[in-house]
Amino acid sequence: MSSGTPVVFVHGLWIHASAWQGWVERYRAAGYDPIAPGWPGDAETVAETRRNSAAVSDRGLDEITASYVRVINGLDAKPVVIGHSFGGLCAQKLLADGHAAAAVAIDPGQIKGVKPVPIAQIRSGLPVLSKPGNKKRAVALTRKQFRFAFGNAIPQSESDELFERWTIPGPGRPLFEASSANFSKNSPAAVDTRKNDRGPLLITAGGRDHTVPQSVAKAAYRLYRHSTATTDFQVFPDRGHSLVFDHGWPEIAEATLTWLKRQGI
C-alpha cells in the first residue's frame, strides 16, 4: 500500500456524505488520504440539506459524476473511488473514464446493460418513479419507505435512528436515467465494461438488499466478462442496502481494505 493514496467516497441517493465519516477515519488510520464530498447541491450538514431540498433537484448522473471529476482533478494523484448505490455507479464511470486508480462499487445502482428488475427493486424506486414529474424534483423518503429500501435487514429501531440521522432529499433524475438506460442510446448510466486498460474493480452485493438486489449487482459484474482488467465480486449474504452506515459497516470497510491490499494499492 502506498501511504497517502487518495480515496474519494461517493454517497448514494437519499444519504448524506457525512455518513461516510467512520470510513474516512478508518481509511486514514490505514494510511490513506480519504475525503467524502457531497453531490451537487448538498449542504455541509443533513439539517441544512433538508432545509434547502430545491438545491439538489434536477441533478442527473452526468452532473453528479462531473462534480467528482472536478474534485479528483484537484488531487495530487488518481484516487481509489468507493461508492455506494448510485455512488457505486458513478465509481464505475470514473474508473472506466480514467479518473480513478481503482474502484469499489458497493451494491451499485444498475448500469446500462443490466437486465434483471426484481420486484423489491421496483418497490424501492416507486417513491420517485411513480410520478413522472419527480424527474425534475427532489424527493424525500418516509420512515416506512426507508425501512423497506434500506433498513430491512436491521432492527426497526436502528432503521428509524439511521433515517433520522442520515437521510436527505435526493434528486429524482438519476432513478429515471437508470431505469430507462436500456432504452436510451446515449444513457448517462452507460459504462465501458469492455475496457482493458483500467484499474481493478470490486463490485459487492448484499444478499438482503431490496434497493439493489444481489441479482442486479451480479448482472453488472457479468457485463465485465469481456474485460481483461481485474474485476471481482463479493457478496455479504445477510446485509441490506444500509450496509455502509449501519452497525455492521466496519465489516464492509475491512473487506474493501483487504481487497485493496491484495491489489497492491
Rank of each mutant, 00 (worst) to 15 (best):
W166G: 02
P116Q: 08
G83W: 03
E161H: 11
Q110C: 02
V114K: 00
L129M: 12
N73K: 13
I106V: 15
P171W: 02
S184V: 15
G151H: 10
A105Y: 12
A138K: 02
F146M: 09
L129Y: 04
P188S: 06
K185I: 12
S184E: 15
A77W: 07
G113S: 10
V81D: 02
A120L: 07
I106C: 03
S124H: 04
A105T: 05
L126Q: 13
A96W: 09
A91Q: 03
R143G: 00
G109Y: 02
L129S: 02
S124C: 13
V128D: 04
P118W: 09
S180Q: 14
Q145S: 12
P169N: 13
D192W: 11
E177M: 09
A149P: 05
G125E: 04
K93H: 11
N196C: 05
F86T: 01
Q121D: 00
P79G: 01
V117P: 00
L162F: 09
A149H: 12
A77H: 11
P155E: 05
P132S: 04
K136G: 01
V104H: 01
P108Q: 10
P108K: 12
I82C: 03
V117I: 14
G170M: 06
Q92N: 05
N186H: 15
P127H: 11
P132K: 05
I168M: 11
G83M: 12
A138N: 04
P169C: 03
L89W: 06
G172V: 05
C90A: 15
R194C: 02
K78M: 13
G172I: 06
V128N: 02
F148V: 01
G83C: 06
S187L: 08
P132R: 12
E161R: 15
K144V: 14
R123V: 15
G133E: 15
A178V: 14
G87I: 10
A91E: 08
L95D: 07
G113N: 04
L95N: 05
S159K: 08
R137W: 00
L175T: 01
K78C: 01
G113Y: 05
A96D: 01
P79E: 03
T142M: 06
P174Y: 08
K135T: 03
T167Y: 03
K195N: 10
I168E: 08
K185P: 00
E164H: 08
I122L: 14
Q110S: 10
A178M: 15
V80M: 07
F86Q: 05
L162D: 03
G98C: 10
A101L: 13
P155R: 06
K135A: 14
H99P: 01
I106W: 04
Q110F: 04
G151M: 12
K136D: 13
S124A: 15
N152I: 13
V104W: 06
I168Y: 09
Q145L: 05
I154R: 12
R123K: 13
F150P: 02
A103F: 10
G170Q: 08
H99F: 14
G83E: 08
A181W: 08
F86R: 03
V117F: 15
V114Y: 06
S130E: 10
K115Y: 07
K78D: 12
I122E: 08
G133W: 12
N134R: 13
K135S: 09
L75F: 05
V104G: 07
L75H: 04
A138Y: 00
G133F: 06
R147H: 11
V104K: 02
